[in-house]
């Protein structure tokens, strides 16, 4: 859905992740770009250079916040101090929605700084949904949760990942940040049909889509965000927008980052799929 209540009824087009190597180019050349996604935690600070850069970006561009540490899947309680800092940043950026991962990563207040997979159980779904609702009530902005890449499956799982995602987002009444690269990576690591995932999520809840590159190893695939988007991921993207409509799309490129133009050109390849979908309707 191009605009829905899970992305603040916006229609943002194609964006890229705001990364340090591109700061100078963006601020000096002011290239055309629909929007930038920022990592919230990098700007949840008291002042200094990060906020100075952010304010300059906000003068020219639309920004959406993406987080990496709310850990909705952890059994730990939400961190109130964290939420307060996040809310202050939301007021600063005016982001129409925020996103974070459907994962866990902390135990008893100690952090792994990783995006760890959740066992797909009803207990885990209820836990995550409750925390997403609490966060959404406090932050007063729509939340979309992102499916993560995973390298492990649990004995205790009771359903498929897409069933689990559906259980969580319907329980929390929140949106989905559908990462089609993560779907591809997990489908290869766990041997399921990636299209089954894309076709069976509640499309009306998809607020945003992520595309990215990955790295193949001998026995598994790792979500590295250091390559262009590969063909099978584009195919999943095409199917996702056929089913859900033209959705705000973002290219992630986090390692071995090339020039701004190269990253942006890669992201704009999504435009041809968006146009085809629009023409076919």
């Amino acid at each position: 859905m191009p605009a829905n209540r899970f992305n603040g009824h916006t229609d943002y087009g194609i964006g890229i992740g705001l990364r340090i190597p591109h700061y100078r180019h963006i601020l000096e050349e002011k290239p055309v770009c629909d929007w930038f996604e920022i990592i919230s935690e990098n700007f949840m600070v008291d002042g200094g250079r990060p906020l100075q850069i952010l304010d300059e970006i906000l003068e020219q561009y639309r920004v959406v916040q993406h987080g990496v540490s709310l850990y909705f899947g952890s059994t730990d309680k939400l961190n109130r101090a964290h939420l307060k800092k996040l809310k202050a940043l939301i007021k600063r950026t005016g982001t129409p929605w925020i996103s974070d991962h459907l994962c866990w990563g902390s135990v008893d207040g100690t952090y792994s700084h990783d995006l760890l997979p959740i066992p797909y159980t009803f207990e885990a779904a209820r836990n995550a949904a409750r925390k997403i609702r609490e966060a959404s009530d406090f932050l007063e902005v729509p939340i979309a949760v992102e499916n993560v890449s995973s390298y492990a499956e649990f004995h205790t799982s009771e359903m498929t990942e897409w069933e689990f995602l559906t259980e969580v987002v319907e329980g929390a009444d929140c949106g989905i940040l559908l990462d089609v690269n993560n779907i591809y990576v997990s489908s290869r690591n766990h041997k399921f049909r990636a299209l089954d995932y894309v076709e069976n999520v509640p499309h009306e809840r998809v607020a945003q889509i992520h595309i990215a590159g990955h790295t193949k190893f001998e026995k598994y695939i790792l979500d590295t965000h250091d390559h262009p988007v590969l063909k099978p991921v584009w195919k999943l993207y095409e199917r996702a927008i056929q089913l859900g409509g033209n959705t705000a799309t973002l290219l992630e490129w986090d390692d071995r980052i090339p020039s701004f133009e190269e990253v942006h050109d890669e992201a704009l390849k999504a435009a041809q799929f968006l146009q085809e979908t629009t023409l076919s309707k």
């Binding site: 990783d114 760890l116 390298y151 492990a152 499956e153 649990f154 004995h155 690591n189 766990h190 041997k191 026995k219 598994y220 790792l222």
Partner: peptide, 16 residues
């Protein structure tokens, strides 16, 4: 953790 046809449970844990 469940093993699969390419990785043991320990090898999957080792990635993390």
């Amino acid at each position: 953790i469940k093993p699969n046809d390419r990785l043991s449970s320990l090898e999957r844990l080792e990635i993390y």
